[in-house]
Write a protein that binds this DNA or RNA. Structure first.
Length: 553
RNA sequence: GCCCCCGUAGCUCAGUGGAUAGAGCGCAGGCCUCCGAAGCCUGAAGCAACGGUUCGAGUCCGUUCGGGGGUACCA
């Protein structure tokens, strides 16, 4: 596992702290090493002296000085300084920083990888859009979030499965089928039929009916009731829509390793097994002909129905079984669901159910707030049933895959986003993703120039990289492995876009101010090696984001 | 009513309890005989309000006021 620069600093500070204050840790403080916002203060800093003031009953500056006096400077740590009110600032040796270029280039596609989560089997479930309509920009937000989280966790060594759950049973499917049957009959010339209550009024249902008629022949469903026709048509329609979800997801750079169908889960008998387990644990109650999970006793406001009085399990009931299966029979150590904000009530009940099954700590949910859809500046309520929505396909046509992914990954999941289609099209060329990609393309262009002039730079002397700007670029690269480790714990993957912008924001001014390929051959070579490392870092970052790193644009 | 998320620059958003709060767009002005101007430089402009915890709060806690979502034998 690669040691980060932060680790190196911590390893230098810890013995100093131990030597100066042998019992420092007894107060519960931990040695945290951070990057000062103002780089002139140093490369890394710790506020541990401030935190230890109470425990050691000594002034923070005095503690800080004692730490400083005990640090052994060396190859990496060049200087340690104390600043009021009690910070200990650490400066890394320029030569050591410059030599990191070699490490980064040699690591290449492995730069930032780690084994921190090795041996951990994680399932990430995301998108899982209802199979009753096409993929919209609202469903789509979970895609990049889940995909990038999967990338990050796999990068940190976990064994990750990307899972998609197809909710192809239940009341909504009945309504869906009935709507479809109505549209189908209409194609056969029927009039005066009503779309059922809560049905799917959107245009795509008519297209779907037409497609099914062409596929199955015009006489399908002759002589059967509307309900029966619905049950006949729904499975085929769902297959078409799920295939569509897969196609558009793939276009969006999102793949899945495994699909679970609710109908298959039901057919397996696993639901009954789960219900029996819950009964054994005494958290189930039969009342009014239905089967309830006693969520009320477990801290919720109301109980939750697992099986309706009709004998049909609820979505919640089946979902509990599905989660139990993943976290027991399928052997995952952890399951992370990426769900939309409308599921938070469901998520609360699920949490209770998982706790009752004693698998609570293994399950985690990331709830993302919705993407609100503005049309010509006016907020539009999206809903498949109402027919008002913005298709992911249309967004990708107009804005492009990279820009859409980057846009959706710029804010944290728990913040709602506004997507103004017209504005997005108009501004698609101003998306920050191009700023980042342009940095990569520019570096590629510098390499082309160097090659044209016959410069071979692999033997460049890194010791020549001693300008502040050059060292800043290296420092920025060294943050990448630190960030990956952080994200593997916090799951705040949107920070990768900010980091990518930071990299580009350092590069462009430096590029403007410094010519790389010049008559000074030694310096040219050293700088080309630096850019090699920088390009590696950009590619690694964009790679985790699922955004391309173009050689030219 | 109760529950969840969010109020940071004109707009869209960043900001692991640390030192002087950032970016993009927009706005005002400047920069291509030089590896790509999808770029660079300069400027104006901000933590909703009030309490609390802390050596230190945009960040944690409480209240108020705004915005979004949820609260079914729907999914």
């Amino acid at each position: 596992m690669m040691e980060t620069a932060r680790d190196v600093v911590a390893a230098a500070l810890r013995p100093a702290l131990d030597a100066a204050f042998p019992d420092w840790a007894a107060g519960g403080a931990v040695l945290e090493v951070e990057r000062p916002k103002d780089p002139s203060r140093g490369d890394y800093a710790t506020s541990v002296a401030l935190r230890l003031t109470r425990h050691l009953r000594r002034p923070p500056l005095e503690i800080a000085r004692a730490i400083r006096d005990n640090v052994a400077t060396g190859e990496a740590v060049a200087a340690v300084e104390v600043a009021p009110p009690g910070f200990v600032n650490v400066r890394l040796a320029p030569g050591w920083l410059a030599r990191r270029v070699e490490t980064i280039v040699r690591a290449g596609p492995a730069f930032g990888r780690s084994t921190g989560l090795a041996g951990r089997k994680v399932q990430i479930e995301y998108v899982s859009a209802n199979p009753t309509g096409p993929m919209t920009i609202a469903n789509a937000r979970g895609g990049p979030l889940g995909d990038v989280l999967a990338n990050v966790l796999a990068f940190a060594g976990a064994d990750v499965q990307r899972e998609y759950y197809v909710n192809d049973a239940g009341t909504q499917i009945e309504v869906f089928g009935k709507t479809l049957a109505v549209r189908y009959r209409e194609l056969q010339g029927a009039t005066g039929l009503e779309i059922p209550e809560g049905g799917y009024r959107a245009e795509y249902m008519i297209d779907l009916a037409r497609q099914l008629r062409d596929e199955l022949g015009p006489s399908v469903g002759d002589g059967v009731s509307l309900e029966e026709l619905g049950r006949l048509l729904a499975p085929r329609a769902i297959a078409i829509l799920v295939a569509g979800h897969q196609r558009v997801a793939e276009r969006f750079g999102i793949r899945f390793d495994h699909f679970t169908y609710e109908t298959a889960l039901m057919a397996s008998g696993y639901f009954g097994e789960t219900l029996a387990d819950l009964r054994r644990r005494g958290v189930v109650e039969d009342r009014d002909g239905a089967v309830w999970l006693k969520t009320r006793e477990l801290g919720e406001d109301i109980d939750s129905v697992l099986v309706r009085s009709t004998g049909v399990p609820t979505y919640f009931g089946v979902d509990v079984a599905y989660h139990r299966q993943a976290l027991t029979d399928r052997g995952f150590d952890q399951k992370i669901d990426i769900w939309g904000a409308n599921t938070h009530g469901h998520a609360r009940r699920m949490k209770v159910a998982m706790a009752a099954l004693e698998i609570g700590p293994k399950w985690q949910v990331i709830i993302y707030q919705f993407v609100r859809f503005l049309h010509e500046g006016v907020l539009v309520k999206m809903g498949k049933r109402t027919g008002q929505f913005l298709l992911l396909d249309d967004v990708l046509d107009a804005v492009g895959v990279d820009a859409t992914r980057f846009f959706l990954l710029q804010s944290s999941a728990d913040r709602s986003l506004d997507f103004d289609f017209e504005l997005a099209v108009q501004q698609s060329n101003e998306n920050p993703v191009y700023y980042v990609q342009y940095a990569h393309a520019r570096i590629a262009s510098v390499f082309r120039t160097a090659r044209e002039r016959g410069v071979e730079w692999s033997d460049g002397d890194l010791a020549l990289l001693d300008h502040p700007g050059e060292l800043s670029l290296i420092r920025a690269c060294l943050r990448f492995p630190e960030l990956v480790r952080e994200l593997s714990e916090t799951h705040q993957v949107h920070q990768l876009t900010g980091y990518a912008s930071e990299l580009a924001g350092l590069f462009h001014p430096w590029y403007k101010a410094n010519r790389v390929v010049t008559d000074d051959v030694p310096r040219t070579k050293a700088r080309l090696r630096l850019l090699d490392a920088f390009a590696v870092t950009l590619r690694q970052t964009l790679g985790l984001l699922g955004v391309s790193a173009p050689e030219s644009m």
